[in-house]
Design a protein around this nucleic acid. Structure first.
Lengths: 352, 352
DNA sequence: TTGAAAGCGATACCAT
DNA sequence: ATGGTATCGCTTTCAA
């Protein structure tokens, strides 16, 4: 690999000094460098296919144009990669590069990941999690502009800006969709109590039910877990051996995998979806929700938007150090709305 | 953020010159620096919590200890993140950091991603894909040590080393497992013809059948696609309205999502798994295979191992430039075996 | 308008 | 054994 052209090479070729090259190429040529020198410099630069060495630039400017992203398990898990995708889009558009370190759910690696990144002089930091959760913010994150995506500072002093989905509204609109189809006996298969998203979605569910003046039965809302088998067992509990008049006509699930389990249970019980039972998912998990049989109606999490919004804030704070997340003030909260995706697993309430 | 200690700070505190600091801290102290100076230097370094600035180091040494990973869609997709996880483990263990750029399936971004990375002076490059595939190797990859993980050079001159799963053996052992359970009428739901993994797995399937001296019926092996609905329709085609004596007793699927579709179809047709029908998946997709109802027997792809092996080769080539993938010789091929994971969706052939 | 020189942080060579 | 100095590539200030 032959060495790349340096500013000195350009200067030689154009017959000027390095300083002139630097000035011109950074747009500060006018008023400092003769017009024709400028032309020669630009010509030489493009001839040599010159671009400044980012490492030297970093050393000189003390800014690397690198954003460090640490994730709890986004990369290795099958979910939420879109947060990083959305964040990266924005970063790239601003000439930044992201480097992501995944701790694979080992919180003890958080600090060291952050230190490694800080050591490499990242200009800013972002923490991304799979699923909404309170985060024990690594100390290092307070030393440079930082944001939280899909998580929030677990300490009372909200020191960092965070971007999260609006789960209450998500829950409300999911149930609202079913209500609109005429359902009145709606079950809610929640995930696990450890997730802060769960109670929020339940609040939304209750709000929707309250607005429709329908009492919420205690046995219709419960923690089921997050996986296919959890959905299956939850559905069996709700449906197996229960008379048609006694069973819920719709089930909203806290994620799409639960919905798969519910669909499996329904099929086993000879219930047709959505004719006998409507099923709603949550997440709009790629390659799952849209290809289910029947295709899943679901509440899409705005992952890309979350990532993009978080990166937007972060870059803002970096480029204008006054008004930033790490600008000394407490962090703000940005909520991004979820998006209802209607497919085929929900339908009108069955006539009895 | 107060500035970090530099070598000069350490030198001052220890009352020596920068050079001495450099020598001692790099283990070249003995024979060059007085024992007691060495002690003072080390003391000062730890007092100041000194660690060399990686940027300055990079500029000086022309090595960044950064490995660039470009992926087609590994980060944003729900799959194969483990390749990156495995690769990153190895890199970290060697004091390297990885920066991954995901092109989100836009091949036209390949070259620019590689250039960006090269521009940032990565010491090596790795390309990772979701699913085995031939790769139009970006030119830039030939300029530094590089490896391919889960993909291979599409040009006849295999210029880069690649690490891929042993799909033929995977297919053979999947079918072998079913054969061992007594099945003789085994269907094979392949993915899409565009994947080179498909024909390989079919070869394996045929080898296993041949070894058991069972003819393979043409209508038992076909391209179905990769998604849940594809599995559903494939299974319906095989099972719906077919007499018990005429239908396959086992179906091996090219991935776990197809298996979900098959399970859905079986449930709808009143077939119990594995009593009436055995189902095998492929991939051991996390949070899917193990939580299916019943839990899916599947052929696990050795993703972590692939990533780790690829990174191992790459670092080898970087640290010993003689014998590397980019060392001038043609690339080698490393095949990593798949792993049979037996769960509950397969069982003895039904007695008729 | 231009070029020379300092400095970002570290290493390696070469005098002392 | 030790410290001074050039160098990596670039930007910026200061003199000419």
């Amino acid at each position: 690999m032959q060495r790349k052209a340096t500013a000195l090479d350009v200067a030689k070729r154009a017959g000027v000094s390095r300083s002139a090259v630097s000035l011109v190429l950074n747009g500060r040529g006018d008023g400092n460098v003769a017009k024709e020198s400028q032309d020669r410099i630009r010509q030489a630069a493009s001839d040599l296919n010159y671009s400044p060495n980012p490492i030297a630039l970093s050393l000189r400017n003390q800014r690397t144009r690198v954003i460090g992203i640490v994730s709890d398990e986004v990369v290795v898990s099958p979910f939420d990669g879109n947060i990083i995708g959305g964040a990266d889009d924005v970063a790239r558009a601003h000439g930044f590069v992201t480097v992501v370190m995944d701790t694979e759910r080992d919180a003890s690696r958080d600090e060291s990941a952050v230190e490694t990144l800080l050591d490499r002089q990242v200009d800013g930091l972002m923490y991304v999690t799979v699923g909404l959760k309170p985060l024990d913010v690594p100390h290092g994150m307070l030393r440079v502009p930082s944001v939280l995506a899909n998580c929030y500072d677990s300490s009372p002093a909200q020191r960092l800006h965070h971007v999260i989905p609006d789960e209450v509204t998500g829950g409300r609109e999911a149930t609202g969709h079913l209500l609109q189809l005429g359902h009145r006996d709606i079950a809610f298969l929640a995930g696990a109590a450890t997730s802060p998203a769960v109670p929020l979605r339940i609040v939304g569910h209750r709000e929707a039910m309250a607005k429709a003046a329908i009492p919420v039965r205690d046995d219709r809302v419960f923690m089921a877990g997050w996986d296919i088998n959890d959905g299956f067992h939850g559905a069996m509990r709700l449906l197996d051996g229960v008379a048609a008049t006694e069973r819920p006509t719709a089930i909203v699930c806290a994620n799409d995998r639960l919905a798969i389990g519910v669909a499996l249970a329904a099929a086993r019980l000879g219930l047709a979806v959505p004719r006998d039972l409507s099923i709603m998912g949550y997440d709009d998990e790629s390659r799952i929700a849209s290809t289910m049989v029947p295709a899943l109606t679901t509440m899409a999490l705005p992952l890309r938007e979350i990532g993009a919004a978080a990166m937007g804030m972060l870059l803002g704070a970096i480029e204008d150090p006054q008004s930033g997340p790490a600008g000394g003030t407490a962090g703000l909260e940005t909520m991004v709305p979820c998006r209802l995706v209607v497919r085929e697993s929900t339908g009108p309430v069955p006539a009895l």
